[in-house]
C-alpha cells in the first residue's frame, strides 16, 4: 500500500471523554456487501489510517511504544466491560503489534475489503481485545469505540465476528478452527494468483484440538508458503497450566515433521518477534510456524503475582488493579 507515513500514536487524538453512541457502526446492507465482496466499502468511523510502505517500517522502539499502548487499551476496555480475557490478550501483544505495525502485513484500514490484503486470523478468539486495540490504532475504527467492548449494540463483540466488523477475517471463539480458515484463505490467494499472505494466531491450549493437526497436515500437503501461524504459548489455559492440563511437549519437535518451517522464540521480545517474522517472510515454499513462548498477562505480571493468580483467565482487572496496571505501563 502507498501513502504518506502516518504514525498511529502521534496523529490521533484520544477523545476519551466523548460519549460513544452504541449504534451499529455498519448497516446490514453494508455488512452484506462487504461480506460478499461485491462492492467497495468504506467503514466508519475512521479517524486514523495506517498505511505501510517498505520504507515506513517502524523501529523496534516505536513498536514497543505501540505495544504499550495496546496493553493499556486491553486493560481499559476489559475493565470497562467488566468481563473479557485481558491476560490472554496481553501475552500476544508483541506478535500482533509487529504484524500490524512492523510492515509484515499489507492492509488498508479504509478499505478492509481490498481483495489483495493480507489476512489476520485470531484463532484464540477470546484474546480479541488485543486485535481490537491494534485495529483501532491502525484506523479501522475510532479508539473511543474500544470502550463499548461487549456491550449490547456494539460491533466489538466478546469474540471476533466478521459479519459485524470489517477488518475481522474470521469469526472465531470455538477453538481449533482458525488455522483451517487461514489455510482456506491462503489457498484462495493461490487460486486468484494474488500475493496475499495469511497470519494465524493460535493458543497453546488450543493445540489440544485435533482439527489444528488436520490443518497442519493439509497446509503441508499444499505447501502454502503464504501461511504463517504463531502459537501464543503463554503456558496457561482455562483451568491451569497447559503442561498440567494436556502437555503437548515441544511444539517445534512435533510440528517440524509435518513439513513446516518452525522457529521457537521469546514472543514477548519485540526484537525476537520481528526477527522471526522476517525469517518466516523469506521462506516461501512451505507453511511457517512460530512457537512464540510468552507469559500470560505479560506487562503486568507483578500485579498478577500479587493477586496470587498468574493465570488470571477470563476475568477483567478490578478498577483499582487496572489503575495500578496502567500506572505500571506508563
Amino acid at each position: 500500500m502507498h501513502g504518506p507515513r502516518t504514525s498511529p500514536t502521534e496523529s490521533r487524538s484520544h477523545p476519551g471523554t466523548t460519549d460513544v453512541p452504541l449504534v451499529e457502526a455498519f448497516s446490514h446492507a453494508e455488512q452484506l456487501t462487504y461480506r460478499l465482496g461485491r462492492a467497495s466499502f468504506r467503514p466508519k468511523p475512521v479517524n486514523n489510517t495506517y498505511k505501510m510502505d517498505e520504507d515506513q517500517k517502524l523501529s523496534i522502539d516505536e513498536l514497543k511504544k505501540i505495544a504499550t499502548t495496546l496493553r493499556k487499551h486491553i486493560i481499559e476496555m476489559t475493565t470497562a466491560a467488566n468481563s473479557g480475557h485481558p491476560s490472554s490478550s496481553l501475552s500476544a501483544v508483541e506478535v500482533v503489534t509487529a504484524l500490524y505495525f512492523g510492515g509484515f502485513m499489507n492492509y488498508d484500514a479504509k478499505k478492509p475489503d481490498w481483495p489483495e490484503r493480507d489476512r489476520f486470523v485470531l484463532s484464540k478468539g477470546h484474546a480479541v481485545p488485543v486485535l481490537y486495540a491494534a485495529m483501532a490504532e491502525a484506523g479501522y475504527f475510532g479508539v473511543e469505540l474500544l470502550k463499548t467492548l461487549r456491550r449490547l449494540g456494539s460491533v466489538l463483540e466478546g469474540h471476533p465476528n466478521l459479519k459485524r466488523l470489517p477488518g475481522i477475517e474470521a469469526s472465531t471463539g470455538s477453538l481449533g478452527q482458525g488455522l483451517s480458515i487461514g489455510l482456506g484463505q491462503a489457498l484462495a490467494a493461490r487460486v486468484d494468483k494474488t500475493k496475499s499472505k495469511v497470519f494465524v494466531v493460535i493458543g497453546d491450549g488450543e493445540m489440544g484440538e485435533g482439527q489444528v493437526w488436520e490443518a497442519l497436515a493439509a497446509a503441508s500437503k499444499y505447501k502454502v508458503g503464504n501461511l504463517t501461524a504463531i502459537i501464543d504459548q503463554n503456558g496457561y489455559q482455562q483451568t491451569g497450566a497447559t503442561k498440567d492440563v494436556l502437555d503437548m511437549g515441544d511444539f517445534q519437535k512435533k510440528i517440524e515433521p509435518f513439513g513446516w518451517h518452525v522457529q521457537t522464540i521469546n514472543g514477548n521480545s519485540m526484537e525476537e518477534v520481528v526477527d522471526a517474522l522476517k525469517t518466516a517472510e523469506a521462506v516461501t515454499d512451505k507453511p511457517k510456524m512460530i512457537v512464540s513462548k510468552t507469559r500470560k498477562g505479560y506487562g503486568i505480571l507483578p500485579l498478577l503475582e500479587e493477586a496470587g493468580d498468574t493465570n488470571f483467565h477470563g476475568k477483567p482487572l478490578p478498577p483499582a488493579m487496572a489503575e495500578k496496571a496502567l500506572a505500571m505501563l506508563s
Binding site: 483451517s180 480458515i181 487461514g182 482456506g184 484463505q185
Partner: peptide, 8 residues
C-alpha cells in the same frame, strides 16, 4: 473450515 476460509 478450509471451505469457510476460501469463501471468506
Amino acid at each position: 473450515s478450509v471451505a469457510g476460509g476460501l469463501a471468506s
